[in-house]
């Protein structure tokens, strides 16, 4: 199990291959413009401020949430 997970991170509940890099690069890799307002990211249950996206380097096994506003009441 551990070997299978060595390149895997969990993004929005789904397992994804991950070969390293910044949080910012990871976000951009999903086709999300990291410079556009309206997106926020949590790493292992903690919000990561936009200013820290470059310096933050997720590691395999991390859980990431990428969120945005949607219709709500």
């Amino acid at each position: 199990m551990a070997a299978d997970r060595s390149h895997i991170i969990i993004v929005n509940g789904e397992a994804h291959d991950f070969s390293g890099g910044s949080l910012r690069a990871l976000i951009a890799g999903f086709g999300i413009d990291p410079d556009r307002r309206g997106v926020a990211v949590a790493l292992n249950g903690e919000a990561v401020p936009r200013a820290a996206w470059d310096a933050t380097r997720p590691v395999p096994g991390d859980r990431i949430e990428i969120v945005r506003p949607l219709a709500g009441g």
């Binding site: 993004v11 509940g13 556009r36 990428i66 945005r68 709500g72």
Partner: peptide
């Protein structure tokens, strides 16, 4: 508005 996960398979206009 509500906060929800971005759909990773689709872009779309943001609210």
């Amino acid at each position: 508005v509500a906060m929800r996960r971005v759909r990773l398979d689709a872009g779309g206009e943001s609210l």
